[in-house]
C-alpha cells in the first residue's frame, strides 16, 4: 500500500553542514533534466504515435534509472529518426545535432548526481563550456559538409561528390604522413642514423 511517508525519501536532504554553497540545485532536478530534454526531442523528431510513445517511455526510464544508460539508447533512437529523410541542409538536423549532444552531457552529469543530494551550479560550467566549443566546431563543420555533400531539400543538387572527397582524402593522408615522417627523419639525421 502506498505510504505518504515514502514521499519524504524523494525530498533532498538539507545541506545544513555546508551552508555556504549557495547556488545549487537539487540532485533530482539534474536527474530529470535529460529526461525532459529527451521528451522534448521526441516530440520534435517523431510524429507517429507509436514511435513517440517509445521515445517518451525511454525518457521516463532515463529519469528513473540513470544507471541503466537508457539516455544513450534514446540518443540512438532519436538519431534513427533521420532514416526516412535524406541528408539535407535543414534546420531540424542542426537542432537534433545540438539536442543529442546536450542529452549526452546532461546524462553524464545526471549519472553522478546524488538523487537526494545537491549539485552546485558551477559544476555545470566546465562541461557546458566544452559543449559550446564542440558544438561551435561541429555545427560549422556540419553546415559546410551538408552544403557541399548533401542534396538540397528540393532536389539532388550536390556541389561536390564523394569522388572529389576521395581525392581530397588521399591528399590529406599524404600531408599527414609527411607531417608525421618529417620529425622522425630529422631526428634520425641528428643522431647520425644510429
Amino acid at each position: 500500500m502506498f505510504d505518504l511517508r515514502d514521499l519524504s525519501r524523494l525530498v533532498p536532504v538539507p545541506l545544513r553542514v555546508l551552508p555556504e554553497i549557495h547556488a545549487r540545485i537539487p540532485g533530482f532536478v539534474v536527474r530529470l533534466a535529460p529526461a525532459v530534454l529527451g521528451a522534448f526531442l521526441c516530440f520534435f523528431v517523431y510524429r507517429q504515435p507509436v514511435l513517440l510513445t517509445i521515445g517518451l517511455l525511454l525518457s521516463v526510464l532515463v529519469a528513473i534509472a540513470p544507471a541503466w544508460l537508457v539516455a544513450w539508447v534514446l540518443i540512438v533512437f532519436l538519431a534513427a529518426s533521420r532514416l526516412p529523410a535524406h541528408a539535407s541542409l535543414e534546420w531540424r538536423f542542426f537542432v537534433l545535432l545540438f539536442g543529442v549532444h546536450l542529452l549526452d552531457v546532461l546524462a553524464r552529469v545526471a549519472s553522478v548526481a546524488p538523487a537526494r543530494g545537491w549539485v552546485q551550479l558551477a559544476a555545470f560550467a566546465r562541461p557546458m563550456r566544452r559543449f559550446a566549443v564542440i558544438q561551435l566546431c561541429v555545427q560549422g563543420f556540419a553546415a559546410v559538409a551538408l552544403w557541399l555533400l548533401a542534396p538540397s531539400a528540393d532536389g539532388d543538387k550536390r556541389p561536390l561528390t564523394w569522388g572529389f572527397f576521395g581525392v581530397v582524402g588521399a591528399v590529406a593522408l599524404v600531408v599527414v604522413t609527411f607531417l608525421l615522417a618529417a620529425p622522425l627523419l630529422r631526428e634520425r639525421l641528428r643522431t647520425g642514423g644510429e
Binding site: 538519431a79 541528408a87 549532444h101 566546431c137 556540419a142
Partner: peptide, 14 residues
Amino acid sequence: RIDFALLALPFAIA
C-alpha cells in the same frame, strides 16, 4: 549517410 556521420562527430570529439 553523411548526416549520421555528423551526428557521431560530437561524441567522438568528446
